[in-house]
Design a protein around this nucleic acid. Structure first.
Lengths: 224, 224
DNA sequence: GATAGTGGTAAGTAGCACTATCCACTATCC
DNA sequence: GGATAGTGGATAGTGCTACTTACCACTATC
């Protein structure tokens, strides 16, 4: 398989494939002659994986590279990879110190205690969680904090489902892929479902949108 | 209140405030003299809101502007705003047509039917959902599709919690804010909680990460 | 033997989110 | 009342990212 076929199979333009090769997102093909190389199904797969991570997982090129490097690393377990995937994907939003932050930390600590989630003080997602709570408090929206318990319960349910799928696999390479895809595409999956569920629940509670002139705002048009 | 105080209260640099004023993210102050203007608490609030939307909601400047424009629009209900918020925040990922897409559409349709979610055919989040399913199928990860039911059930639980908070409010302006914040910061909130839950569940099932040398990869360091 | 395609590299581009600089003017402090 | 810092407003520039274009010597194919 040459580059044109690789491009056709994945929908990724040839110059972009060259770029990904340069950036190490895609391993080079098996060289065959001075300026010819052979690509296989593994390249198609990797390219689709990278595109999915970037498009739906919202990863940057650099983050995607870090992830696929770990994917190729034989000395890493799927549990470790989960941590790496989580780290690479969590933007570090260190909230500014102050009384607001201290209060938010207490809120989050209490939540973790209620859930029975222990020893997560070092987790890279904690600062983001605390930062969101700080923002909500500064905006005077403490009335939104009680939903944290519902969110956490739902999150635990999702996590159990995630880990169950991984647990069924003994093939290490596949397990790693499931971890990465589950962590990253799972976010996109869940937020889509959340929006759909919101629409469903809203309609059940309040009926359809009140202003018929605005229904077209649900369609893809402007202001994206 | 002058610009310097506005900057001090929010942590946003003065040139950035000027930029936001130019871009319409922040309404101009009440003019007082030829080159002086007065800002109030509403400006502080709006600025914090915008920062939260951008930082934790991941919105672009253009999307944030579209949202705050709708926030100021008196002729829009909170139900409509939910739709607008969802639309502005959902990146439109139209998956390419083909047999893979048809199959994915059927998978999603069945899921919606099982959940009892009707009349969502036009919802802007559907293409994203279908796109993720297409990606998973193309990567041969159909074994991840069964978790969709768990995700959807969790999403419904979260949506009910979301809408309950909104329903408690009669003040329209506050309700709109809750909708926007809930939709956008809720994503960040939930994915943080999901990662924490994954860590918790993983540890309960498999014990701590196997390779102690890799534990430092949980800390913020490289490869972001 | 003409043409299209190949791998590889260097340079260019478009968009985004600021940031710097300048301006005439004003408020404030000594 | 004069120096200084700050104001609103505009234009231009910056740094980054994710490609895209252009070019090269070479090769496969018609």
């Amino acid at each position: 398989m040459r580059m044109a076929e690789l491009s056709a199979d994945t929908g990724v333009p040839v110059p972009t494939i060259k770029y990904y090769l340069r950036e190490g997102l895609l391993p080079p093909g098996r060289p065959v002659g001075r300026n010819q190389a052979e690509y296989g199904p593994a390249h198609v797969r990797r390219l689709k994986l990278v595109r999915a991570l970037i498009e739906y997982g919202g990863l940057s090129i650099a983050t995607a590279r870090a992830l696929v490097e770990h994917l190729d690393d034989p000395g890493i377990s799927s549990g470790d990879l989960l941590g790496v995937a989580q780290l690479t994907v969590s933007a570090q939003h260190e909230p500014p110190p102050g009384p607001g932050r201290d209060a938010a930390e207490r809120v989050v600590e209490d939540l973790l205690a209620r859930m029975g989630w222990h020893d997560l003080r070092e987790h890279p997602s904690l600062p983001t969680l605390i930062g969101v709570v700080v923002s909500l408090s500064e905006l005077g929206r403490e009335d939104m904090l009680p939903v944290l318990d519902d969110y956490a319960a739902a999150a635990e349910r999702v996590a159990v489902a995630d880990l169950t799928v991984v647990g069924d696999l003994e093939d290490r390479e596949r397990a790693m892929e499931v971890v990465v895809l589950g962590t990253l595409l799972g976010d996109a999956l869940f937020s889509s479902l959340r929006r759909l569920a919101q629409a469903h629940v809203t309609r059940r509670l309040h009926g359809p949108p009140t202003d018929p002139d605005r229904c077209d705002e649900w369609r893809p048009s402007a202001s994206g």
